[in-house]
Design a protein around this nucleic acid. Sequence first.
DNA 1: GCCGTTTTCGGCCCGACTGTTTTCAGTCG
Length: 557
Amino acid sequence: MALLDANEVADLLEEIGDRLELTGESPFKVRAYRNAADLLRELNEPLAELVASRRLMKFPGIGEAIAEKISSLHKKGTHPTLERLREEVPDGLLDVFRIPGLGPKKVLQLRDTLGIEDLDALERAAQSDKLVTLKGFTAKMQAKVLESIGFVRASAKRILLIEADFLARERIHQLKADPGCLRSEVTGETRRRCETVGETAVLAEFDPGAKLPADDGRARVAACAPGQFGTKMLFETGAPDFVEAMMRHAEKQGAKLTPEGLTLKSGPAETPTEERVFMALGVPFVPPELREDAGALEQALNGSLPDLIVEKDVKGILHSHTTYSDGQASLEAMCEAVRALGLGYYGVCDHSQSASYAGGLKEDKIKAQHAEAEKLNAAYEKKGVAFRVFKGIESDIREDGSLDYPDEVLKRFDFVVASVHSRFDLDEKTQTSRVAKAAQNPFTTILGHMTGRLLLRRTGYKLDIARVLEACAANGVAVEINAHPVRLDLDWRWHTRARELGCLLSINPDAHTIPELEHYRYGVAVARKGGVTAKDNLTSLDAGELAKHFSARKART
DNA sequence: GCCGTTTTCGGCCCGACTGTTTTCAGTCG
């Protein structure tokens, strides 16, 4: 058994936590496992070293029991406690637990009274009106459960892009050590940067006669012979509609495009790379992110492919949290981490006062944070460091659409990200008016994670997105592309519409830790899918241009 | 399960919302 890394161990700790909760264990014990899992994910040194040097217990939140479990999970891939819990708590019950509105108590109640241990049983019970017979269940909840089952079922078959990246990287790492493997690259939805991935896949070119690697059950390896890499890459990357369009285009030219190779009228073409396939067919290279359907090929052929944003176009970080609210690193540490990424500014953006669960900022903390920000700016200037801290806030949008502070407090910020964190259950019309009203507020600079979706966990609230985009455009409010891998919200399918309406977008990581700052790259990935160019993105402005943008916005208030 | 001590137990983030709850438990962010 290969040694498990920190992320894999974190997943297993999470699993222990979930299963423990479904045995009715103390919520605090459950939280201890989840906290330990979170901590492992933010580690910035290899887990192997921590285990070897027995330093795990140095971390707050990891005691003797969890340290022992981490060691065992790391070395053996399992632990007796996990094995016992897997016997005790059926997998199906974990699926039931994922239905929004069903917490541990209700899941156990369903099992104990109706014998429900999986989604199928839950669906049957809901369809035959059994849930409403239970204490604490209503017709409304039953309907909501039925509505969610399909979403949870579909989610179970997919993983987040960031997880697929991890699996693919690991597989490629293994393949590099394989002497028969000449080269390997990620393909499929992962290469197209889809926000969730059904199948993680890698293409590997092997020496003829080389022994092919065994399946690891996590990332599929497609093997090809030398010379086929270019065409095989195209077919493995998909999407099917795009590939079909390419085949038809080839046919029109009297050529034949198959996974095994490209044959032109003049004979077989050498296609060692995908670029050569495009070239041989006279098609400008289509970035994988755009290959969702035939439309991208049309754009390529008529020369209208967008000049997609790249990671280097992002010049700084806006919307990210610190220890002033629910972030894990201090303001200064975040600034230094952003500088280390080669970026030019940090727009601190902690939660506002209503977000008490997240330690939202009361006025005294705002003052303290602003004093520290100004001190940092003065110190950077004195040292001749080209770096700037902007004073922002992530203001809750209250139920009536107003922001979370009076105007005289709001005007002290350089910028305001307005986001919904409560009352997800409003009907579409009410929710739309609420969010649109926030967009009309002259203090709002950016509209944060517009739909509130959490990928594979929760659909967004009901919202007329087009109407909200119109409100943003009319008021010069930038629309966030929240780059957190679990959000990626606004969805890339709306980016074109947003740009057509005249909205500026803003790629923001919403980081709560130092490693999460780099999530802005996921924002760039989906922005590319959405056809976004550098000039469409607020954070492509440098610090000076951004300061001007903020001043211009504030002049409206 | 972790932690801190006024140290070996008792608290652990907390406020809002929902429902059938007539005073609170469950869920969520």
